[in-house]
Design a protein around this nucleic acid. Sequence first.
DNA 1: AGAAGGACCAGTGGTCCGTA
DNA 2: AGAAGGACCAGTGGTCCGTA
Lengths: 268, 268
Amino acid sequence: DATHALDALSQEGLSEEHVQQEKEAAGSGGGGVWEMVVAAGGRKQRRRKDNCKAGRRSRMASMDDDDDDDDDETEGAEDDDCGGGGGGERQREHPFIVTEPGEVARGKKNGLDYLFHLYEQCREFLIQVQNIAKERGEKCPTKVTNQVFRYAKKAGANYINKPKMRHYVHCYALHCLDEETSNALRRAFKERGENVGAWRQACYKPLVAIAARQGWDIDAIFNAHPRLSIWYVPTKLRQLCHTERSSAATAAATSSSITGGGVDHLPF
Amino acid sequence: DATHALDALSQEGLSEEHVQQEKEAAGSGGGGVWEMVVAAGGRKQRRRKDNCKAGRRSRMASMDDDDDDDDDETEGAEDDDCGGGGGGERQREHPFIVTEPGEVARGKKNGLDYLFHLYEQCREFLIQVQNIAKERGEKCPTKVTNQVFRYAKKAGANYINKPKMRHYVHCYALHCLDEETSNALRRAFKERGENVGAWRQACYKPLVAIAARQGWDIDAIFNAHPRLSIWYVPTKLRQLCHTERSSAATAAATSSSITGGGVDHLPF
DNA sequence: AGAAGGACCAGTGGTCCGTA
DNA sequence: AGAAGGACCAGTGGTCCGTA
């Protein structure tokens, strides 16, 4: 179903240009790019640069049925990571850039809607793994585990990997828990021309503020949200909540007045 | 508190004779042996055979404050597992025998109330580990993990170990979920003079029957019980439930009459 | 420089099998 | 023989750091 269409669409580095094309092909505009992609039904498959992938290609053979639209790739002459020797490959996903909600990244970049979409895809892979486990009477994962990443890879979603997903979990968490704030942060960081790393760092603070309002139990906050509950709480977020709770408690005990919001003294 | 008293009491192979003494000392009779032990406050500590434990003893040094009542040990002359050589030790817990509820094992044996008590102790160790984790803002186990077993060992509960606890989990599960049936099974197997292995095997069947009545979801059954939810569902129990569900479904589809209870065709 | 992800590592769940 | 548990092993969560 839709998941598989998307897997095919996205494989081997779904570039933003491509998304843009899909979007334009679907006659879209603004908001819900990924929903459009889903609606488009995955008619086209991504294989640009397959010429670099000698060894791996055969695995996807069943999907190699449409080879048109090799497009504006502008591969520079010295862009030789497809170098000879028979096995020279090494494709990576395009790096993320800070985009506004609904905005499609330009150049060899991926946008943040795409990033968040990867989390949704992982959730769908988890659900599939769970269904298989239940059918077989095996123990059933409640989180996105190594098994799920392995399953995603086997299903052709090579663009999904554990380090990447773990790296941005808290960004996705903010998106789930307070989309308004998440959107505002994206707009602000895009406007200021900040890079992805800076945006990623900035996602921690509003999350800690949310935790503060809800009794500091970040695990409970994750678990209470249906799409977030399948992700492990990132170590750093947990630590920030703990540190801030301690200093908030100290502040409350030291002075008789509680500072507004209680999270103004974050040392980060 | 109570846990620690019990740890001390039980360490290095709490024998049934000793329990009997505790019980008699406390002027008891029938039912609730372990509650009595708790009530007794752990006045006495167990050290018989410490002479075999040269190396390990020092670890418990702080508890070595009362050395009386070296009792009816009747150590046979050829019972030489305390053999010389400076490091010759190798104490094991006395093996379990099938006892009725409230019955104390005789001879160098441990009874089933003691077995089940070990599960309660693990639960208390888990709670302590959880409290420490929460205090430190670290991730908090919901199950009895390796970490908990390690903690129990450090706390002096050397008689608790993972293979043993995992081995009898389903027996404890039956005890939690249907004490009546569990007690009846114990009485029946004791009367027939069956060994612990046979009793242990027999515990599976009533559990599968419980699962059958509750939609076969053994994980949900474990999770719904506050004392059981901290234990992993044993692989074999999970498999039995799966197999039996499948054959029950087949039977239901094949014949138009459902057999009484639906679990009469267990191939075990 | 900023970023993606292969690959490593300490500690896990699971239980076998050498031991008593 | 029946049983207790040290110790092993495959696969985990976590993330570093060689790579592009």
